[in-house]
Design a protein around this nucleic acid. Sequence first.
DNA 1: TGCGGGTGCAA
DNA 2: TATTGCACCCGCA
Length: 949
Amino acid sequence: MSHKRSRPLILIDASGWLFRAYHALPPLTTPRGEHTGAVLGMANMLRRLLKDYAPEEIAVVFDAPGKTFRDEIYSEYKANRDATPEDLSIQFPMIAELVQAMGLPLLAIAGVEADDVIGTLASQADAAGKDVLIVTSDKDLAQLVNTRISLLDTMKNRRMDPAGVVEKFGVPPERIIDYLTLVGDTSDNIPGVPLVGPKTAAKWLVEHGSLDAIVNNAEQIKGKAGENLRASLGQIPMSRQLATIRCDVELPLRFDQLHPAPPDVDKLAGLYRRFEFRRLLEELESSAPPATAAPAPVAVIEAPIAAPGEVPVEVPAGAPAEAAPAAEPPPQESKKTRDELVVDEAAFAAMLEKLEAAEVICLDTETDALSAMQSGLVGLAFAVEQGHGWYVPVAHNYLGAPEQLPMQDVLRRLKPILEDPRKPKLGQHIKYDLNVLARHGIEVQGVAYDTMLESYVLDAAGNRHDMDTLADKYLGHSTIHFSDVAGKGKSQITFNQVSLDVASAYSAEDADITLRLHHVLYPRLCEVPALKKVFETIEMPLVPVLAGIERNGVKVDGPLLGRISTELAGRMDELQAQVWQQAEGEFNLGSPKQLQAILYDKLKLPVLGKTPKGEPSTAEDVLEELAAQHPLPRLILDWRAMQKLRSTYTDNLPREINPQTGRIHTSYHQAVAATGRLSSQDPNLQNIPVRTAEGRRIRQAFIAEPGNAVLSIDYSQIELRLMAHFSGDARLQDAFAKGLDIHQATAAEVFGIPLEEVGEQRRAAKAINFGLIYGMSAFGLARQLAIGRGEAQDYIDRFFARYPGVKQFMDSTREQAKTRGYVETLYGRRLYLPNILSRNAAQRQYAERTAINAPLQGTAADLIKLAMIDVAAWIAAHAPRLRMIMQVHDELVFEGPQAELRARAPELADRMCRVSQLAVPLVADWGVGANWDEAHTSQGHASSAQKPA
DNA sequence: TGCGGGTGCAA
DNA sequence: TATTGCACCCGCA
């Protein structure tokens, strides 16, 4: 049974909303001088909510004036609050009128706050299995969030679900009360623990689990904040009580009595006229149905409505014994790193001793350029305990730079430690440091932790994984930015020009922050054994393998690319002349905007497609269709194809050749793709052309050193095989078991013909097979195959009829995504899909497609990563003259002496196939050639391995 | 100089 | 109204 989303209950924290809207909205007055900005804001917000969510029940909840139970608990409660501005408070009665005229229930309950009313109604609805949307900008209400209850900030248009709470506060909803208790609230005058702000509170809660655990471990908590905690222990129970929203308030009605009534059109029109809301009035008059006998709205007013902050603040005699000393806002906690600049022998020796004794060594290198393959080492930073870092400068050479320890000595003495596999190393994006150090003669061993990858495995798509982002998110710490020390733009200096003091503060902090991040992230990883395993057995072992591939690089024939470029340029000139002739005027062929004007304005060709922004598209598929009616689109297509090859490949690849190595060294990014794939950058070697003959000429420029050859091995149909494995579909598995051409087999099934009679149907079957992996719709398939929607739907229906397991797999995967909020790969790598329950259909459907695709794409990524780790170890042990030089998602490319490469190819392909035992065989095809194109084209040798039956 | 939009290359 | 990426060029602030 799928969990059906019903029309929600909406609860509006009206007092809080107005207070904030008052400051956010422009001050609006009628000519008579009535202030109406907040009224209009409320009207628009309510209309929007009704339209967007069609709530089954709704209530606009105000604070009632007078004391609440919180004032009983704490005499200073809300004592700091400013009085409500008068031009806001006079709008409250107007708003009450408006809400009632709109037919919406309005609540103001004496003795409690709006939050408690909301909490009570929300928990009633939750118990009844109903979805609840709370409109608020107040963080306190985050404690109510769960899978059914979410917060909506209408001003920022953001929904906050449990994951959102974690993202914003660093703790889940059930820890929000603990969080608020620790942090306190200056506006409510709730005492927190001095020096403990949002970040420390979240950090402690993550480390200890709960406020109770923190209290129990108070003796162990270090620093000034720890002292303050111990001093505040007495007031914690009271703060906790103040921060807790009550969910058991006695109310005169239940949530299911809060149905909106039809608006009282006459009254509403009268109000709109009085407030001079012309647009709303027009809309009302143009759309209003004849007034029906409107049932009176359920408006329960237990007390007059109070403006926020109107609560009396007189202090009763006999205030609580230990009134909090924290009237002032919690000061920003200090997280400064104690940095130690190492420029003399004694300090260096002392540091080495500490490094030797450390359990984990956090390291960071500073260089004079961004590229790990070009840069020179400028300094090294280390940290072994939180709060302290060393910086060892070795090549700062600005005018007047102090003397530093000689680089060669420093490296020679660090080498035994860094190359000791028993000493675990930690870094942020440590692959960079491995490459820099390798180029300086140190092969770092024992690479155990990388905070970037810890964050990536925890939640690949939740945030970026650079240090600044992580420090902000997990430590609440704003790091010293590189641009702060080196400037930016034209005037940016390189790190060797940065003064030692500044460099030391920056670098030591980087190492320290990395260590602190590790202490937050790694425990989280350990909480989910599958993720810990992905981290330990896939991502970390892959780091040195990738570093090796990057350093190996690939040889590219620059002169060949240059010749191709010249040839293309000549042909493009001719095409351009013809285009200008056809268009009867010169224009820039590379400008979609100018081309659009020519095609659609000047030549009046039909608009067959739009860009995402709604402009007439000049994209390939559109031009392809237009080519039937006019010669110009074809010329443009040809020109574009050549322009693409030239600008992206023939002209730019030669510039990427490293002058020292004569090869191209890409960077593989391990923490970018949501699914677990790698990406390649500077240059991207994972999108080198292969489909067209013209494009393959680029691949021919990927060559080997003299005497060497290129070996390409790729997995055959890996994602479809994984679909067969996951789905358990007998027919699909059988097709792979028999070694059939899978597209041909699908064609036979879908079209109900014998295998040997499959002809043109194979193309359609291939499109279906691939579409399947991407969660394609009938609409998409129809467009792909240029057939009718009905026909496409028919294909899909027949596909699912023949492969029922696949249908079942897709349904259950979507279901899992909905109930758990994530999907996972064969190895337990997770992808969270926060939008899977979105009310926005486009977002939800997108998440559903991702839910189908991610386990397949992600498992394929896991498999080839494992294969790379295995193959790299095997090469190191058995064939050190071979080099792994590229990875392209389902393909590995090697270089080595021709004969040896050919001899070793079957073993390498076998190892790739044996990396995992699935329900269908894994097959890898390989080929050897003088260049990448030849290696690819000559593929025909296959290896195969399967789980024994 | 940086950014968004449009386009197109790969798996 | 098909998944994941990277990078080019244009046009504009």
